[in-house]
Design a protein around this nucleic acid. Structure first.
Lengths: 263, 263
DNA sequence: TCACAATCAATTGTCTGAGTTATATCACAT
DNA sequence: ATGTGATATAACTCAGACAATTGATTGTGA
């Protein structure tokens, strides 16, 4: 067994053969991005363990059949996210898990592609339960009319489209973004944006596997109402309940996915 | 005025001239890293505003007198942190501030090099006040003897070294890291690690400008004691008070820095 | 006048091959 | 043991070419 990267779909649109185009599942625009994606997911999956050094640039790029430049740029991306570390003579090694920037939106997205552990999901929602109710509280105290208008508009779209459509999911994100802007706290907004985007991404799977899902609009509306009337306590409580329900949905979805791994 | 990047120290160890070596302030190992650092700080400072497109690769790399590869790798780093976005024909443009991963440890470090706004500092500590007391609470409930031993050892070093030494500051980080491990929440630990590292980095400045600073060890010890006796409420309260004091120190330091910008 | 298709050109993306620099490892001497 | 120096290996940097993508422009037909 000398095969390093087993059973991956091709990294690039096969430029030579005009047939077999239908493969391009994982392909994303740029080559370095696609490779960073693949390596990132592999690291998260444990295909490459922390401490392990990757094959050197020459070998890697040649076995992947790409140029050294593209390979190096992919490594830079992973290094920027704290997942690998390169030094001359020592090679490029996977860093210890503690140093990974798992709250980076891209990393978080990769995470959700790997059937993350129950513990991780729980930890993430625990963090949401800490931050987002507090954010709702701040939003209730600091929101302006403009914020309310944004949130209200997003809610209308959510109601009309439901979470089954792309537009509906986007509206969900817009609602949370508006709420985070209302907190007037940039760092808090950045954190919630990352997590929210990742969780919303997983909503796509929820929607597919679960036949019936709780309508999220009323819960969101309650949060909105509390913020509108500047009731910080109620905003906190409603947001907390909203997240608990999302956790519940997500956990149930993950379980059914374990039963039927692929669609 | 056609000058693009005004008054920056040299990007590389001047390889030609053997003298004037003393310049190497900002230099960090690799060229792509140093450039990413410089560009990142410039973006945070507003030298390059969101929406603005950077000069193209050819021009940029030639005016900076580096190769296109090195320049491109720097851009990939910034793109990985959400700060720029490249597209063929359209160029590389600075993304809107909301999309920056300001909780990335590196970005946060760059932030503290730019005399961040009062609002940003307050927002960051507001986030700490939300997450870290909650973390202390969780740590009190879940800590093991091993965690306690780690924290205790770190406290001893802090006491012996004080925050004036590198070892002392490292011990401070170790204390918080052990605490975060005790929470058993990976996401929470990652967040606090980012913020903690950045704030600790700023401690270096605190130490320099402020002649006398509150001794932080007793406050830390109180948090430790509460966690040891599994008193979640006390742990939360002590941690909150610890952070409020740190905020106080930081704000005072920032103010004095405004009066006397450079040492 | 407007919608849509074809063309163009600017910019990033990719490739190749070479030389340079840092550093982990080992041998050797202290 | 400890420190010092040589060596080989890896990442790092460079240069120049070509390919691919796409925003803008122009042309075409209704």
């Amino acid at each position: 067994m000398t095969i390093d990267t087993p059973s991956h779909p091709p990294l690039r649109r096969t430029p030579v053969s005009d047939q077999a185009q239908s493969f391009g599942l994982t392909f994303q625009g740029r080559l370095h991005g696609a490779l960073a994606h693949r390596l990132g997911v592999d690291i998260l999956k444990g295909v490459y363990a922390p401490g392990q050094v990757l094959p050197n640039e020459i070998d890697s790029s040649s076995t992947l059949d790409i140029s050294r430049s593209a390979y190096r740029e992919a490594i830079r991306i992973l290094a920027a996210k704290g997942m690998v570390e390169s030094r001359p003579k020592a090679g490029t090694k996977v860093t210890e898990r503690k140093r990974w920037n798992i709250l980076d939106p891209e990393v978080l997205g990769w995470m959700f592609e790997t059937e993350p552990s129950e513990d991780f999901i729980k930890g993430l929602f625990e963090l949401r339960l800490i931050t987002e109710p507090a954010a709702a509280e701040l939003a209730a105290l600091r929101r302006t009319e403009a914020h309310l208008k944004q949130m209200d508009a997003a809610l209308d779209v959510m109601e009309a489209e439901t979470l089954a459509t792309e537009a509906g999911r986007r509206a969900d994100l817009e609602f949370h973004d508006a709420l985070m802007n209302a907190t007037g706290n940039e760092a808090l907004a950045s954190l919630s944006h990352s997590i929210g985007a990742a969780v919303a991404w997983s909503t796509r799977f929820k929607q597919r596997s679960g036949p019936l899902l709780r309508d999220p609009v009323p819960d969101h509306r309650r949060v909105y109402d509390a913020i509108k009337r500047q009731d910080a306590g109620a905003a906190r409580w409603c947001m907390e309940s909203l997240i608990r329900m999302a956790l519940d949905d997500t956990q149930r979805t993950m379980k059914t996915q374990l039963i039927e791994p692929r669609g």
